[in-house]
């Protein structure tokens, strides 16, 4: 009695709901990972990467991430289709949709705050 494969909807619903925070997490990974690795190598004298490039990398990733989140806020239904998200009950659908948007807003704040720090600080200095 093998039931039909309905893990599409729940996995899709989770991804759809969490798309904002997921982009936030990806952003943190992509700015922190390369920045700390490149700085570690710079300090150890293993690479000559220009610090300015690291700053640009952080800024670039931030801009892309923010654009991505805004896209999901702007066209949530497109995103829903990508993840094959649907809910039978109306209240459920609108609940998940608006939750997804609010989470996107919070993620946007998080990404913007993290990205903006690169405008002030030297990317590799310990500053102590």
């Amino acid at each position: 009695m093998k039931a039909g494969n309905d893990n599409g909807p729940i996995a899709g619903a989770i991804l759809f709901l969490l798309i904002g925070p997921i982009i936030w997490a990806a952003h943190l990974l992509l700015v922190y990972g390369p920045q700390s690795a490149l700085c570690a190598f710079r300090i150890a004298g293993r690479t000559q990467v220009d610090p300015w490039l690291i700053s640009m990398l952080v800024a670039g990733v931030t801009v892309i991430a923010m654009a991505a989140v805004m896209l999901t806020l702007w066209r949530p239904r497109r995103v829903a289709r990508i993840f094959r998200f649907d809910a039978a009950a109306n209240d459920n659908r609108s609940f998940i949709l608006s939750s997804m948007r609010w989470l996107g807003v919070l993620a946007l704040i998080g990404i913007a705050l993290a990205g903006a720090t690169t405008l002030i600080l030297d990317p590799c200095a310990q500053l102590r």
Partner: peptide
């Protein structure tokens, strides 16, 4: 003693 910018990312997340 890790670079200040790394710290700042996490300071920002703490605000968030």
């Amino acid at each position: 003693g890790i670079p200040a910018l790394s710290l700042a990312f996490f300071s920002a997340a703490s605000m968030a």
